[in-house]
Design a protein around this nucleic acid. Structure first.
Lengths: 192, 192
DNA sequence: CCCAAAAGCTAATGCCATTAGCAAACTGCG
DNA sequence: CGCAGTTTGCTAATGGCATTAGCTTTTGGG
């Protein structure tokens, strides 16, 4: 019997693919094992049970969306950067729906403070820095931005918006409105 | 053997209580049956399997938050109504976390267009009407409001906000900022 | 070439959802 | 009051999944 040649990374990536294709709550050790042509218990040599597997997917998602947002924002600033980052955020959630659901639960499956190559919160924060918001207001502003983006994407992917039309426009307006809010944020200066 | 005297409503309410106490994904037919002092298969006489049970919880949550928001907004208008509605929304999510998670998935477990006593989306929409937003912009404005509120509450309850302090203030600022956004919404008039 | 560590496997356990079929309890009607 | 039909709840059985234990085989370094 030849070996399958699995590694923790290979297993995690297959799990992430499965999550994106079938939905994060279809993720099971059994399903991943089947896709890898391996018996279920074999996976325990590479990941720490179902919880560990979910955590790996969450980690892939967190790093993935962080990089996407960062890449989109680089070389831009102000409203321009905000729109680019927001679009990248939403696009990532669309192309990797399973990872996106998983990453929301990161703290639940992985301990606090896991090693992230690119923290998406940090990437969004960088975008806001260009708006000249008072330092003690940054926490609030970042939370507001994350809330708006995540809320929209989450409602959208769950089919929470009854009418299918104009969703792109709704998002653009949301980001637009948020940009204006930022410019008038309490204690903030103005730029562009 | 005396009968337990269950009804669909009793089962649904116990399921909702369990969801709020233990988390929505701890909801299982077995757990509900145990709390009701009944064997698991007995529940099938009252609800349509696990999916049906989840749907009932989602329905309770949807009606519950809808009523809470509506009750909060009645007799108020403009920014005042918005703050009251937003606070009621968040308070409901805090006091009924299981139901809140469940209601996000309503379309998934119940068919489209279930009979709601009070549609929370409608309740929020009523609040926005006071802002004099152009009719064709209402869809976008409602989506933006729902996104902001849901996003914040969702991130918060998942422990997405690392720093525990100032969360109330963050929310107040979010709503505040949104109110200003509404007043400048494309094509909107102004009121208060 | 050999041997220890690693990778996979089968077997077994336990929890859960779901279905089938049975028995007791309630209902309304004569 | 009695009885038939319906309803409710039960036990038994099946199948899927996660997890653990213990075995076998491969593999790579000395």
């Amino acid at each position: 019997m030849p070996r399958a040649g699995l590694t923790p990374a290979l297993v995690a990536e297959e799990a992430a693919r499965l999550s994106d294709e079938e939905g994060f709550d279809s993720l099971s050790l059994a399903a991943v094992a089947k896709r890898l042509g391996v018996a279920t218990p074999s996976l325990y040599k590479h990941v720490d049970g179902l919880t560990g597997l979910r955590g790996e997917v969450a980690l892939l998602g967190t790093n993935g969306i962080g990089e996407a947002v960062q890449r989109a924002a680089v070389g831009r600033s102000g409203t321009d950067a905000l729109h680019a980052a927001a679009d990248a955020y939403r696009r990532y959630a669309h192309t990797h729906p399973g990872r996106y659901v998983a990453l929301q639960q990161l703290p639940r499956w992985v301990g606090p403070a896991p090693e992230l190559s690119t923290d998406p919160v940090e990437a969004l924060a960088a975008v806001l820095r260009g708006f000249g918001i008072a330092e003690e207001q940054m926490v609030h502003a970042i939370r507001a931005l994350r809330s708006a983006l995540h809320g929209f994407v989450d409602l959208e992917t769950r089919g929470g918006f009854g009418l299918p039309e104009d969703v792109d426009e709704s998002y653009a307006l949301l980001v637009e409105g948020f940009a204006r809010t930022l410019e008038h944020w309490p204690g903030s200066g103005r730029r562009r």
